[in-house]
Design a protein around this nucleic acid. Structure first.
Length: 259
DNA sequence: ATGCCTCGCACAGCGAGA
C-alpha cells in the first residue's frame, strides 16, 4: 500500500495537477493539505471520476485537509480536527483507517512570525499532536502520520538550502525542532530518512526568487511510521519533478510504501 | 532591509503562506 502526502496549495487552483499526479503515480492513499476551500467547494465528483473516494475537512480561504483512497479500499474516518482545544477552529487534522492502516493527515501551523502568538499556537498545536501520537501508538494497528509538518528537522544542509536564511524562521527554531524530536522519541520513524539517511531531501521550494531553479528548498513534509508500520516499510520517496510543472504547488508529493 | 510569487477573496489590494 502506497501512502502519499501532498500540500497542494489550493485544491481548485491545483485540480488538474492533482488529477494528473494521481493518474501518473496511482497512490493508494493520499493526504492533502491546504485545500483553501470550504467543504461545499471540494471537487468530490472529479476525485471520484479519477477512481478515488475521499473525506475532507475544509475551511474558507485557509488550511483544509483531505484523505483520498482508491475506490474499493475500506476507508472510514477516525478523527476530525486535532483533539485538545475546543476553541481551535482551524481545519488542520483529519484521520482515517484505510484497510486497517490508520492514517493521520496533518497541516501543522507555520508559526511565523516568531516570537508571537502564531508561534505560540504552533508549539501548543504540536503538544496536542504529541498527545494524539501517544494515543495512536497505543493501537495495535500500523499508523502513518503524514503531512506538512512545517518543521525543518535539522539545522543542516540536508534539510535546508541555507541555515543562515532560515535562522530566524519559525520552521527551524530550536523549540519547533525539539517538539518534533519529542514526537519522534515516542517511537515514530521518519520514513524518508530511513531510505535516505543523509543528503538534501527537500520537499518545498518557494515561488519567489527562483528558489526551484537554484534548488533553494527545504524538507518540511514528512511521513512518520509507527513501529508496527515501520516493520512493513519497503520504500519511500519524494516526487521532486512535479515542482517543475506548470502551475505547480510549492510543495511536492512525498510517499511511503508498506508491504 | 525589503520584495521576490501564488492563492483566495472579490474586484483592489491585502493577508497568509514559508
Amino acid at each position: 500500500m502506497r501512502i502519499a502526502t501532498y500540500n497542494i496549495n489550493g485544491i481548485k487552483a491545483r485540480l488538474l495537477r492533482l488529477l494528473e499526479w494521481l493518474g501518473e503515480t496511482t497512490p493508494d492513499v493520499v493526504c492533502l493539505q491546504e485545500l483553501k476551500s470550504q467543504d461545499e467547494g471540494f471537487p468530490a465528483a472529479d476525485i471520484e471520476a479519477a477512481g478515488y473516494q475521499a473525506i475532507w475537512h475544509g475551511q474558507k480561504s485557509f488550511n483544509g485537509v483531505a484523505i483520498l483512497s482508491r475506490a474499493g479500499l475500506d476507508l472510514h474516518e477516525t478523527q476530525r480536527g486535532l483533539p485538545g482545544d475546543p476553541e481551535d477552529a482551524q481545519s488542520r487534522y483529519l484521520e482515517a483507517a484505510v484497510n486497517g492502516v490508520i492514517v493521520g493527515c496533518l497541516y501543522l501551523p507555520n508559526g511565523n512570525p516568531q516570537p508571537g502568538p502564531k508561534f505560540d499556537y504552533k508549539l501548543a498545536w504540536m503538544e496536542r499532536l504529541a498527545a494524539r501520537g501517544e494515543a495512536l501508538l497505543a493501537c495495535e494497528a500500523p499508523v502513518i502520520l503524514a503531512g506538512d509538518w512545517n518543521v525543518i528537522p535539522t539545522t543542516t544542509h540536508d534539510d535546508t538550502f541555507s541555515v543562515r536564511a532560515m535562522a530566524d524562521d519559525a520552521l527551524m527554531q530550536p523549540e519547533s525542532q525539539a517538539a518534533f524530536r519529542r514526537i519522534l522519541a515516542q517511537g515514530w520513524i521518519d520514513a524518508i530518512r530511513t531510505f535516505q539517511p543523509s543528503g538534501p531531501a527537500y520537499t518545498f521550494w518557494d515561488y519567489q526568487a527562483g528558489a526551484w531553479a537554484r534548488d533553494a528548498g527545504f524538507r518540511i513534509d514528512h511521513l512518520l511510521a509507527s513501529p508496527v508500520a515501520a516493520d512493513r516499510l519497503v520504500r519511500a520517496g519524494i516526487d521532486r519533478a512535479y515542482r517543475g510543472r506548470e502551475k505547480a504547488s510549492d510543495h511536492v508529493p512525498v510517499w511511503v510504501e508498506l508491504r
